[in-house]
Design a protein around this nucleic acid. Sequence first.
DNA 1: GCATCTACCTACCACTTGGTAGGCAGGCAG
DNA 2: CTGCCTGCCTACCAAGTGGTAGGTAGATGC
Lengths: 236, 236
Amino acid sequence: MPSDRSEKREVSERILDAATRLFAERGFEATSLQSVADAVGIRKPSLLYHFPSKDELRKAVLDKLLSHWNQVLPKLLMAATSGREQFDAIIKETVAFFTADRDRARLLLREALDRPKEMRALIVGHVQPWADVVSNYIRRGREAGRVRADVDPEAYIVHAINLVVSSIATFDSIGALGTSKDRSGDDSDLRRHVDELVRVARASLFRQLEALGIAPREERDEAPSSTDDANAPTGS
Amino acid sequence: MPSDRSEKREVSERILDAATRLFAERGFEATSLQSVADAVGIRKPSLLYHFPSKDELRKAVLDKLLSHWNQVLPKLLMAATSGREQFDAIIKETVAFFTADRDRARLLLREALDRPKEMRALIVGHVQPWADVVSNYIRRGREAGRVRADVDPEAYIVHAINLVVSSIATFDSIGALGTSKDRSGDDSDLRRHVDELVRVARASLFRQLEALGIAPREERDEAPSSTDDANAPTGS
DNA sequence: GCATCTACCTACCACTTGGTAGGCAGGCAG
DNA sequence: CTGCCTGCCTACCAAGTGGTAGGTAGATGC
């Protein structure tokens, strides 16, 4: 067995990692402190020495995940260029964050189901400010004709987040539909899954102008907002 | 729906209802047989008389949900007209099914997280045949120019299902972003949420042709040929 | 009358749960 | 050396878990 689990690392860290994995896999209620202690290789009271209660352990796990996320997020928003590239950067980094460790997605989704009120508060605190930035960006894009006129910015963001988190979290189960049977590549299935996910998020936000080679003028969706030909989409 | 809490209704039915609600709300592991029995108003052994074990109760709850769904689904696919209307009918009915009782969405999502293998098997059995029909429809639409060229039909369906189920299941938590603070209307928030959800599903599938005043290559598309209908999903 | 079946009950079981009490080895400061 | 703190341990606890044993009131069938 993996006894060289790097005992150098602080025990608390190893507890957090094991708890994260088990909570994500089986859920909080279905995970006993005993099983976490076993995974770490210590006795249960030793675990409770580091985290005074099971609920404190849960909060610590969640905290670590959110702080990790909050560490990577601001960079994205600041490094944003403009137009679609900003969007691509954000969504691709988000997808990368959750695909790198799908337990993150599972954990968040479970929390959202188990403790909606608490999660709501956490989201309002952690994600709302960032979401406001993005929704302003969407509104500007809409005025400029880059973004579809019928997009509801706030609601769109909710669905985009949900799309990423949930589809990654449930890939093992719901993703069964999209997989090819013969193909051994679990990885290629996931890539295909994620590619389509990004496509859906993009396509439902932006207009299809380049694809049709049509400039954003006479449009039924929105009154031709004066002279906004300036910001032409980047040819690609 | 008659909220017949009286003793007239079969006890088994009342157990199933209570269990559905509690499993969806707190999760399977976090729900004790005692709490289900309390909700129904009977003793625990009486509950175990109707369902021989907790796991059998879970299966019965899941079965009832899926059979209900399988009862409404074939009608949709058969009553399909053509083009976008078929899509609209399917997605709107699906959304209606899950918004009518959000516990349905929560329950399915929880099962997907808790028992991915089992859920995968259930999906392959119950949803795969139907999904094949839809993906053929998407392929035809793509050839006809109605559907965007870059859609991955199988993967799209997965995301569409996921989008509906997950966003409805997590509305109370993740949906916090999209809600207006002053507005008391939980209902109008949900409607706005759902409207955008349908929009995302549509917009990421179809091309924007009408909006631009361009007619798609007129091509006759029809419901699945009657010979292929044999593989339609059947009840459990 | 009498046996049987259904639907429910009380009383109990073995086991697991989160959590506590208290002890013990070792590092380290005075 | 003593005294104290950290980190981990064994031993234990009350409460709750899923589940069983066995009994009983009432309806049904012969």
